[in-house]
Each structure stands twice: as C-alpha cells, then as structure tokens.
Amino acid sequence: MDIKDIIKEENLVYSKTKVLTDNVMHYCPGCTHGVVHKILAEVIDELNIQEKTIGVTPVGCAVLAYNYLHIDWQEAAHGRAPAVATAINRLYPEKYVFTYQGDGDLASIGAAEIIHACNRGEKMLVIFINNGIYGMTGGQMAPTTLEGMPTSTSPYGRDVKMTGQPLKITELIAQLPGTCYVTRQAAHTPAAVRKLKKAITKAFDNTGKKKGTSFIEVVSTCNSGWKLSPVKSNEWMVEHMFPYYPLGDMKDE
C-alpha cells in the first residue's frame, strides 16, 4: 500500500485540536510546556467547554500561554494567579477557571496565594509545572530544585544547609480540606501523557461539579536550564526527579 493511499482525510486519527492556535510556541525544543498545553486544549475541546473556560497565566516561561489556546485568558502578576482566578471563579461560578503556574511562581513567590486559594476550595483547576528551575529568567534555583542540582544561582549544586530542602508543595496542598483532587503526573512518555490527560479531564469534571480545588503537578523538564538534550532530560527526570517527587494520586475525593 502506498503512503499516499494512507494519508487521506478519512484515515486521519490524530491531529492538532482546533482549541490550539496556529502560533509557533516560543518554548525551547522538547519543552514539557508544549505537551501540557496540547493536552489542556484537547480536554477543553473534548469536554466542549471552550466558551466557558478562562485560563490564568503565570510569570515565567508560560507567561505567553495565552498565545496558544483559543480561550479567554488573564495574565497574572508573579505568583498571584490563584488570587486572580479566585475572583473569576466567584464572579463567574459557571465558568471553568484554571491557573497554569511554574514552580517559582507557585511554590516560591506565590506560596501564600496558592495555599489560601486551595484552602478556600476555589472551584478551579491548578496546573503546576515542576521542573526544579526558573526557566524564563535563565536557569536559577527554584524552591523545588533538587539537593546538589546545579543552577545559575547554585552553581556548585543546591546547598540544603543554606537554602533548605526542595519543597514538596503538592504534599502540603493535599493536606488542605479545600482540595478534592491532588495528583502528581508527568508527560515524558505516551503512557504518561495519556494518564495526564485523564487527570486533567477529571479535574475539569470536578470543576464543573463544583467539588473544590483540583491540583495537578506535572513533573517536567527544562532541557535548556538543565543543559541536557530533550531526550536526556527525560532520562534525568526519571532517574532524579521521580524518586523525590513520586508520581501518583495523593487525594481523590
């Protein structure tokens, strides 16, 4: 059978969802953000909630996420996305509100906002990208940077005596009664991406049912910041990040 007999409209099994824009993403080659954006867009499309979804972008690499999904967006100040999303949720209780935040944004400068929004049980979804580094500003140490991991502000490796242990904020969040679903996922293999998609679908479903805050950590790579190739970054993540940040559900009520 010839290739051109296969490549026909009726045989199409996978293509870009219409919720994704045609803009070329500014992310580095192999960046996890792109995969998570795509999954978010696919879930929004499949649940048919495009007109009801409002996203809140962080400060960090994902600040420009609003260029990539055909939904309404607000861009928040560094760490403040949960506060911004709180107001949207309260004023438009029928909408599907989500924040999309990195580890510096969520676990460092915005630690207060995320804890209190989750504690209030805001009816929203939080996507937390944890790659253990500040990507946008050039690879500085994050609260989630692993012990001994070199970054531009910990060039000899993170010294936990100076800066404390890497913060497992998702474990903290899972303690809060306002959260209904807390899980840690990844997006490095087809199987992981399929599981992540199920998690995001469940989280939006929770939002629709007004169950409380759903919180999804995605253990991610930053190959530019880690100074590894995309493929090597995934291997490094599996070897070093997963033991400290084990995947799986922490709470599902």
């Binding site: 409002i54 607000q74 506060a83 911004v84 107001a87 949207i88 309260r90 004023l91 906002e113 209190h116």
Partner: peptide
C-alpha cells in the same frame, strides 16, 4: 461578592481578576 483575602496583595489581584471579567 464580598471576600476577605489572605493579604492586601491577594486582594488587589482578586480585583485584577474581577475587573478583567
């Protein structure tokens, strides 16, 4: 809606979110 925020910082960012709506 009336909400006591966790800080003035959060309160003004809630205003941002609401005004954006």
């Amino acid at each position: 809606v009336v909400l006591q925020a966790e800080s003035e910082v959060a309160a003004i960012n809630m205003v941002y979110g609401g005004a954006g709506c």
